[in-house]
Design a protein around this nucleic acid. Structure first.
Lengths: 165, 165
DNA sequence: AAACATTGTTATATTCCATAGCATTGGCCG
DNA sequence: CGGCCAATGCTATGGAATATAACAATGTTT
């Protein structure tokens, strides 16, 4: 493939007289650029970084946003159901949910027919907050779309990512 | 790590309207599946998880692999240069490098012309270890390629990811 | 020489994620 | 019914990754 036995140190010799105390030029990064996991991580980090920046003043983090979205589309579900759907351990989900509840965005009602479970619902405040977040997120997604070069590229990317999940 | 159940039982439309004591069928996840950051994270997590599993017996983690690759292609570079290229803070890079050195994979030689800096070099043992890791990684990358549906899809994905980084 | 920047390092806080264990409740089966 | 096991929410805790601050030694600039 691309990165197998390619490159020997091309830094070899300074053609001119050697002075090693200078010009630290660019590194060879060929070996990493062809690695899917590496590229995935960089891209994910970049996108998440932007998310954190955009939602800093709303104090909303990616996981919380996904939780609100999922509850909005699936009201009354149990904590474990939502957590499982997002790949979050139920132990860690507790803190997340409690924080959102403390801000008044959701309620944990007693589930009908199971006194152990909590049925999750958005409050009116939560609905409005989510609407604002959605609008803000739309802008961000639009920026990413521009960065990708169009809707075709974006849906192509989403499709390919889905094959990896 | 638990994965999202991709193939969920189809939600049976209930023409009789709602009842709250229903069977817990699949959740609606439409809201999240269209979010780039979300999909990126899931895919990255999935790929990294496989990496950790594949390299468990070699006791090699993704960051370490990328470090070895970069040093192999850029011998004699300073710690900070390698760290910067990988987006690793130099403070955290110390532990990483020391672990690899303790296993005999690399050396920190005194840099020529700068007594503060360490020039990083792979040892012979490090070269051989990296070769073994590369072979193992080839297999993994091949699996991902199959998962993506061919080389065209893979290079397409890499290109799109690069636009996000 | 003095002031400032860089390099490697240590220490530390934070955040995310995983595991273990607990009390309560539900389901099941004799 | 009683007994056993599973599920649910929760707490506590550890590990790993990441970010910041500070430091000594050295290099660079003024």
């Amino acid at each position: 493939m691309e990165y197998n036995n390619v490159c020997q140190p091309r830094k070899t010799e300074n053609p001119m007289g050697d002075d090693l105390t200078n010009v630290s030029d660019a590194l060879r990064t060929d070996a990493t650029t062809g690695i899917l996991g590496y590229r995935l991580r960089r891209a994910q980090l970049s996108v998440f970084q932007r998310f954190l920046q955009v939602f800093e003043e709303m104090r909303l983090r990616p996981a919380e946003y996904s939780v609100l979205l999922l509850i909005a589309d699936n009201p009354g579900r149990k904590q474990t159901e939502i957590a499982d759907a997002l790949g979050i351990k139920r132990a860690n989900f507790v803190t997340l949910i409690h924080a959102l509840q403390a801000r008044g965005f959701l309620e944990r009602r007693a589930a009908a027919g199971d006194r152990r479970a909590n049925a999750l619902h958005l409050t009116e405040e939560g609905v409005q907050f989510l609407a604002a977040a959605r609008a803000r997120h739309e802008d961000m997604e639009q920026q990413l779309l521009d960065q990708l070069g169009g809707e075709a590229s974006r849906s192509q990317l989403l499709m390919l990512l889905e094959r990896l999940g």
